[in-house]
Structures are given as structure tokens and as C-alpha cells.
Amino acid sequence: MTTQTLLEQFLKQAERLDVAVFPHGPTPALKEWLDKIRTATGFQEAWVDPAMENSPPFLEEALSESGFQSAFPLEPREIDSSPNVALGVARADFGLAYSGSLAFIKTNPLVTLVPAGLLVVLDAKKILPAYKELFLELTSPLPAILSLVTGPSQTSDIEKKLIKGVHGPKWVAILLHG
């Protein structure tokens, strides 16, 4: 499969999952999305994954423009009460075309779990067809945690009705580059 078809499939699944996809740069749409989370949660804190090498400068600007305060997440054992975090920012190592999943290898999994919103930087060239190809990419020993995020946190436990944002992020967006 070509990079282009993989990307198309990925975007289609992302749309199904209600995951917003923005181009890699400062756009009004991104600002609107960030503002929405800022207002809806009323929280300021944004966790930026420490493993995120060279986070793009425009992102830092966009965050502070929307009133977020960047912080780095602590090790789990140092968090003693439930934190109020509006946004998590992390770089995905891969995307999966089949399911619209985002795969994280080095990212602290709390960054993609605790905040109400999740903003993920993804390289369009890093989109793989499905699990099989992803697992082939992983060299042994396997990462201690391979975390796959596929859309917002959700449950259908009440009358099988879809509810988003149960324990993990309610809003997920991708900044796509390359």
C-alpha cells in the first residue's frame, strides 16, 4: 500500500472516531480546538510529554495563546492527588491505517490518559497498515509499554449508548506533518 492510501485510510478512521486532524502549523482551527478545551474544562495545566523531542515552537505559542500553562508530568508515584489537567501533548511514534490508532512507545502513558484533551503530533510517513506491521517495527526487547490510543476514552455500559471521556481524554486531535 502506498503512503497516500495509508494516509487516506487513516484519516477516514480518524474521522469516524471523531478525532480532529489539523495541519502542522498555527491555524485558526487548532486555536478554536484549544480554546474549546480550555473553556470546557476550566483548567490551565497542559502536560507536554518530556519524551517529545523538539516540540514545534508554534505549538508552544498556540498553547500559551489559548491560556495553557505547560508542565511536565511527574512520575506516577509522585502524584498524590488527582490532578486537574486540561491537555496532554505528545508525539505518536506510529499511526495505524486500519483502525486510526496512535501508537506511543516512549511517551509517559499518563500524558495520554489523565488530561481531558489530547493533542498528538504525528508524522504522515509513520502510518502503518495495521497491528502486524506495527509489531514488526518493534525491535526486541519490546518496549516496556506499547500504548495504543484509538479515539477518545469511551464507554457503552449504559444502555450501550456511547459516552465519551470516561477516564481518559474526551477530545483527541492530531497535528499531522510530512
Binding site: G100, L113, L142, A144, I145, L148, V149, T150, Q154
Partner: peptide, 16 residues
């Protein structure tokens, strides 16, 4: 669903 919202793979020795 094509995938659950969260799929977590923990591997030895650290298991996360």
C-alpha cells in the same frame, strides 16, 4: 470496533 480505545501492551522485564 476496529480497536478498543486503549490497547496496552506491557512487556518484560519492566511491565511499564
Amino acid at each position: 470496533q476496529r480497536a478498543g480505545a486503549y490497547t496496552t501492551l506491557l512487556s518484560p522485564p519492566e511491565f511499564g
